[in-house]
Design a protein around this nucleic acid. Structure first.
Lengths: 212, 212
DNA sequence: TAGATTGTTAATCGATTAACAATC
DNA sequence: TAGATTGTTAATCGATTAACAATC
């Protein structure tokens, strides 16, 4: 039933997870159907925008009725690839890496954590995160040839990121969840990068506080 | 010299931290001056956009010369409030909260962490993060009346966030760095919220992998 | 059938890009 | 002065909102 994907704009994509979240809430509250108007009021959007967004992918609604909450949620989930199983490795197991690995429900979102690497793995002999031990960076090459992960989560210091990315790309990894400040996209083409720049976020907050 | 701030769009604001970062890099490389054209090539933007963005705030450049790297960096830093000193408390000291508190260079970005709270503070008697111990949530009210923090960082489970936000707002806190999935803006007006929705980010990555 | 609400087209608004006169 | 590059206005492009015919 889903439409041929044309070229959906990033603005739309970025809104999808939020729809997914709100629909999950509605489902929890045992709400079965919802109109674009009602959803728009809850989410602080226009009904028009919701209908436009959803119609990028197909006619999920029904005239005179609205949308079926659970069905719509599943459709959006499938568009976002919630049911995927991307083999993922974590590079850098310091405070942040540890938190990301143990805190995030990777599996719920289509990512399967299969390996953890850190340059000081020696100091982490006894550490286990989700049953995984921490391997030294030297093992990366052999490991990747065997396990063929497709995604790397980067939680290493920004200034040592460049050569690591170089290596990962050489080993065939094309998808990055990047917590460093290193600007992967401006150095490499044909690579998928989702940045989480916490410092940038903090500075945006700071601006908003000063100019509210 | 800075212009009267009209109403700068969020699109522009969100780009400023990235400018700040690139200018920091250039400074490190002892580059003194840069033209919008050269900067645009390094950052993968158009020169036009850079000039437009910067001119929202004032004429930082000089015709025939370009921009002075260090001066421009400082101007942007000051727009973003890098030199501020917002009193900040952390709510929730689990894996993520711990990582955020110890990993982030709050101070460099205008935020001063002055207190940490967790509902299970009893189990964290010996924990010290940046010299701070973890206080129980019951102490929040008295503490806020005394110390008057203006920013709260939320690293608690999403489903217990609503009442905590309620309380913090009652205690006069209006600015939030929100790592939970709870949608503060849709429940409260006149509040500054900067969201870091890691799950949303992960889902966006997933979409991009499937549709690259 | 009448009422409700979608899917979709048209109108508006905002953001990005192009162009160029001002000026260092 | 001539060359370079900004600041700024105008043109284009894209995203959001409004409107309404289609239809459940």
């Amino acid at each position: 039933m889903a439409k041929e994907k044309k070229d959906i704009s990033m603005s739309v994509i970025k809104r999808l997870p939020r729809y997914y979240r709100f629909l999950g809430e509605l489902k929890k509250q045992s709400i079965v159907r919802i109109s674009s108007r009602e959803l728009s009021q809850r989410m602080g959007l226009t009904a028009s925008q919701i209908r436009q967004d959803l119609n990028c992918f197909g006619g999920f609604g029904q005239q005179g009725y609205g949308y079926n909450v659970d069905q719509l949620r599943q459709e959006i989930g499938s568009i976002l690839g919630v049911g995927s199983d991307f083999k993922t490795i974590l590079i850098g197991c310091g405070n942040l890496g540890k938190a990301i690995a143990s805190h995030m429900v990777f599996e719920d979102r289509g990512f399967k954590l299969i390996g953890i690497f850190d340059s000081r793995a020696d100091d982490m002999k006894d550490l286990r995160i989700k049953g995984l031990s921490v391997s030294p960076m030297e093992d990366l090459e052999v490991y990747c040839r065997e396990a063929e992960p497709s995604v790397a989560v980067l939680c290493i210091p920004s200034d040592s990121t460049a050569p690591v990315v170089e290596k990962l790309i050489a080993l065939g990894i094309r998808n990055f969840w990047n917590f460093t400040h290193y600007d992967i996209s401006s150095h490499h083409d044909g690579v998928v990068v989702e940045n989480v720049h916490l410092n940038d976020s903090l500075m945006t907050l700071s601006y908003q506080i000063l100019n509210q």
